[in-house]
Simulated assay, not measured.
Amino acid sequence: MTASSAGVRAELDLDALAVHLQAILPTGLAGPLSASLISGGRSNPTYRLSDTAHQWVLRRPPYGHVLPNAHDMTREYTVIAALGDTAVPVPAAVLLCEDTSVLGAPFYLMELVEGRAVGTIEQAASLTPAQRHGLGLDLADTLAALHEIDPVTVGLEGFGRPDGYLQRQLKLWSRQWELSKTSERPAVAALLDKLGRALPATRFPGIVHGDVKLDNVLVAPDDPARIVAVLDWEMATYGDTLADVGLMLGFWDVPGQTFNPLTKGLATLDGFPTRTELLDRYRSRRGIDLPEIDWYTIFADFKIAVILEGIHHRHSRGETVGEGFEDIGAMVGPLLDRALDLAAQSEIPELRR
């Protein structure tokens, strides 16, 4: 999605932004600023920003209703800056502005990575089956590489607390649901009860991305089986790395089962690894076993449903920017139902009850 410069100017105060950047960038600005909307963001509005010599990406929180602890620009900037010299591909961090007088909210700039998006069926359909297979495996490899990083070595030891992480996550997303819900859904209480009774111990602490999916990566223009940037780190933390694996699987649809309404069967295109292959690849890269993975996958569907309800809440109040929000509310129920279906079939007894 794009927006005209005039439209963006009404959302981004380019005059105020130019004054700020002129003062803070080491070389100042090379000419006037222009901006276009890359994504209205079912989450964070994201803009391509340029002067006559440079191009950046600007990220800011959504306009209007924002959940507590969500859309944290400082968190996102901190983690991509910390990972800049690791095996995990991230855009270079340029600057963080926490002064809300500039744009009305915190924001940050990062480098513009020349990459190819593969997060929709239409985008992935342009790849060959072999490229899709390689891309799926590279996603699992990239996630394993992230989870093998010692947070202490990159300065993220204080980025979160693995102990009690899952308990806090359940409380957080239960609270977020209560703050965002637009209707009562009995499935929420049922899922929270099951997840609470089956809560696993955190066995593999590490850096958690928090939103692992093909829509949040860019691939090399000349090699779409190679990821060149992992994006959208707003929910990153130091916690239970298997939460990311559950999310990856939640966005990885299975033929014959209910699709995630966001991905719409993307991973069932010919060539993509199966969910089992993806999980086996990750497991072999880390040399670990994952007996409780159903819990994490069910929690992922619940978490995504809560996020979508929050977006639906903002859209119903006219607080979203861009297009593609009209059907968000209708996606919540299918995700909750899918999570209950998986719980009913799980080998974990507490989830089946």
Results as ranks from 00 to 15, higher is better:
296 Y>T: 07
159 F>Y: 12
243 A>L: 08
55 Q>R: 15
148 E>F: 00
19 V>A: 15
260 N>W: 09
247 L>P: 00
327 D>G: 02
349 P>C: 10
148 E>S: 15
111 E>N: 04
260 N>S: 14
258 T>K: 08
351 L>V: 05
110 M>H: 03
323 E>S: 15
343 A>L: 13
258 T>W: 02
101 S>W: 08
87 A>P: 06
315 H>L: 11
310 G>V: 03
24 I>Y: 00
113 V>A: 05
302 F>R: 02
157 E>Q: 15
11 E>N: 01
9 R>L: 06
187 A>F: 03
333 G>S: 11
116 R>L: 01
91 P>R: 03
269 L>C: 06
13 D>S: 14
322 G>M: 02
95 L>A: 01
282 Y>M: 08
37 L>Y: 01
276 T>V: 14
242 L>S: 05
282 Y>K: 13
39 S>P: 04
64 G>P: 09
56 W>T: 01
149 I>A: 11
24 I>C: 03
304 I>R: 10
102 V>P: 14
278 L>W: 05
305 A>S: 15
232 D>A: 11
169 Q>D: 03
160 G>Q: 02
20 H>A: 09
80 I>E: 03
93 A>N: 09
108 Y>V: 02
185 R>M: 14
24 I>F: 02
169 Q>C: 08
184 E>I: 07
278 L>K: 01
335 L>T: 05
174 S>W: 02
304 I>N: 13
127 L>S: 04
328 I>H: 04
9 R>I: 03
63 Y>G: 06
15 D>F: 05
59 R>H: 12
353 R>W: 05
26 P>G: 13
58 L>K: 10
136 G>Q: 10
338 R>E: 13
229 A>P: 07
10 A>K: 15
67 L>Q: 04
297 T>F: 07
297 T>E: 11
33 L>E: 03
96 L>H: 09
164 G>H: 04
288 I>N: 04
110 M>R: 13
144 A>V: 05
341 D>G: 02
7 G>T: 13
11 E>S: 06
306 V>M: 12
233 W>H: 06
325 F>M: 12
132 R>Y: 09
350 E>P: 06
220 A>C: 01
11 E>G: 03
33 L>K: 09
